[in-house]
Design a protein around this nucleic acid. Structure first.
Lengths: 148, 148
DNA sequence: CTACATGCAAACCGTTTGCACCCTA
DNA sequence: TAGGGTGCAAACGGTTTGCATGTAG
């Protein structure tokens, strides 16, 4: 490993109650660099490209641990058969997914929060959260569609 | 098969451009009876219980065909590792899923429609649809949680 | 009669797990 | 040094596929 343990992550991982290992650090670093959700395989592959070799199952276990300790969030994307993860530090987000090129655009504004309260009152459910994904075609792909 | 081909479904399947078979009819009937989304295995199992034996792969293929022809909709539920389907005739719906007992409650009102227009203007995406799932605890489960 | 649907069995692929060894705290 | 983390390889479970046979149109 090029530089050993990283101070910044050390505090963040430790604060979350996680034992510090090089693998967790590398995965966590990689996750934080991303601006859109990634699959477990994406992270594994990219680390491999950087000569950082670790087992796929370790990446799975690290992401699971990060999620359990609130540092990562698992995202479900329709028609994609693998799980996506994102760093929770980016805040509450929703995504607009292009059905053509699979590009993912993140959306900061959430139209559901107010609705949750209303719904909770009506159903007596305690609402813990929600997932909202929007699907469509990005400007480039819709231009291509028009041509054909 | 007890009663052979069913007139009502015949028109509905045929109108959608699907060849009429006993298997498609049985799966479609079963799907329409449900008030909440079901898994492929659920349908297969229930039909089996009714002495209607067909291969699991057939159920997969039938549901795929129904979806492609607009008669069924595929639903993704977080933390569930299998696909859910529902009859599209029930209209546009959202679901409230209990994290305790996995009960699914359907919601008719959709708070996202208006938001889509606004978002489309801002991003230049052509928005084709969305999925909104809400997660929480139903009254019974939240009562149990309080006790422990 | 022909194209498409089904059954069966095997392949697939993302994910999980058991176990021996390693390393952080 | 103990208890948790990792690598490796094998298992797992939902889903898909190839192929021979059956059947709707």
């Amino acid at each position: 490993m090029a530089s050993g343990l990283n101070k910044k992550n050390r505090s963040e991982l430790a604060k979350a109650g996680l034992r510090q290992t090089i693998q967790r650090e590398q995965v966590f670093d990689n996750l934080k660099e991303r601006s859109t959700p990634v699959t477990v395989g994406d992270i594994h592959k990219e680390l491999f490209g950087k000569q950082i070799h670790m087992d796929l199952s370790t990446v799975y276990r690290v992401l699971e641990a990060l999620e359990k300790h609130g540092l990562a969030r698992r995202i479900v994307i329709e028609n994609e058969n693998s799980a996506y993860y994102e760093y929770t530090g980016c805040g509450h987000r929703h995504y607009l997914v292009c059905l053509g090129c699979k590009k993912i655009v993140s959306i900061e504004k959430c139209p559901v929060k107010a609705y949750e309260k209303d719904l909770s009152k009506k159903t007596d459910f305690i609402i813990e959260g929600h997932s909202l994904m929007l699907y469509g075609y990005c400007p480039e792909c819709s231009r291509k569609l028009r041509k054909t």
